[in-house]
Design a protein around this nucleic acid. Structure first.
Lengths: 155, 155
DNA sequence: CCACACTGGTTTCATTTGTAACCATTGAAA
DNA sequence: TTTCAATGGTTACAAATGAAACCAGTGTGG
């Protein structure tokens, strides 16, 4: 992954292009940026807002903390995204009966409609991307990412 | 990569956890965050600053535009990172003789020293990460990322 | 019952980022 | 040569982010 130009303690050069953290980041950034156009153009959503929508659409009803865990967002991001979606009337908060600190978040009809509209677009985006890969490459990416995730211990 | 719950136009659910852009981003973010500790703890560098250092260390002397291209950074990021490294006296600007818009950036002795110190740490980080993978997984990641990059057309 | 640590969530503030406007310089066209 | 589009780079402003302080509300130990 990385090339040593010298063996001893002479100057060692790091080839950024093949440095894993960099490669990974650059690619993720490019893909994410590309994909973001879909929800940004369509509804002016930010990434945290899109993730919130996606999380709620997928799970039906979640607390803010659960959302943060599922989509790896800082609580402040969640808080702000939720506030914005609420402002749009895409979700509602229902206070928990037993624990009044907790709010259960649910998509409204409008929120659900937006979700239903986004899902096929998201899938299509992914399909188009994957379609450019061979079957072998697809499994390579899938397995590679999975393995790396495990290696990171952030399971 | 993605699961359809329904075949017809009923509600389709997007499984965020297996959605490629999300998986990619999450992983890159985690790795990058982890790695950033190295240059942040050690020298209080930001990511753009680190990349600038890495670029110059690798290539010896570059213009700001070249830096931006190599490390996929917006010109404003480059500009600010360069300004900061200059403030630290880690690099110097030399105006181009022929084209006075251009400045050639070069690491000073101090900058080079910092670079030399960082490189082994970076390599070690990568090695430790890769060491947790099997040989097959390593090639899977490498090839997968490469293929995806090509698919994106951002070569 | 009452401290007191903890948790869910929001807000405040400082930093980082992106967009667009900008300045200076260049190069080609009129 | 003057003009004008394009380029290298910086700056100004607005938006997104993260850290830490904060405000309930909970639940445990005395």
């Amino acid at each position: 992954m990385t090339t040593k130009r010298e063996t001893s303690d002479e100057l060692e050069i790091l080839e950024l292009e093949s440095f894993l953290p960099y490669r990974l980041y650059r690619l993720a950034d490019a893909v994410s940026r590309e994909f973001s156009r879909i929800y940004k153009d369509r509804h002016g959503l930010t990434r945290p807002e899109w993730r919130t929508l996606a999380g709620l659409g997928q799970h039906g009803s979640m607390t803010a903390t659960a959302l943060g865990e599922q989509s790896a967002m800082h609580k402040t991001k969640v808080s702000r995204a939720v506030a914005e979606l609420e402002r749009r009337r895409w979700l509602t908060r229902t206070p928990d009966e037993k624990d009044r600190r907790i709010e259960h978040l649910t998509l409204t009809r409008a929120g659900l409609a937006a979700y239903r509209e986004m899902v096929p677009l998201a899938m299509e985006f992914e399909q188009e991307l994957l379609a450019k890969l061979s079957a072998g490459e697809r499994t390579a990416i899938t397995n590679g990412l999975l393995a790396l995730k495990k290696a990171l211990g952030k399971d």
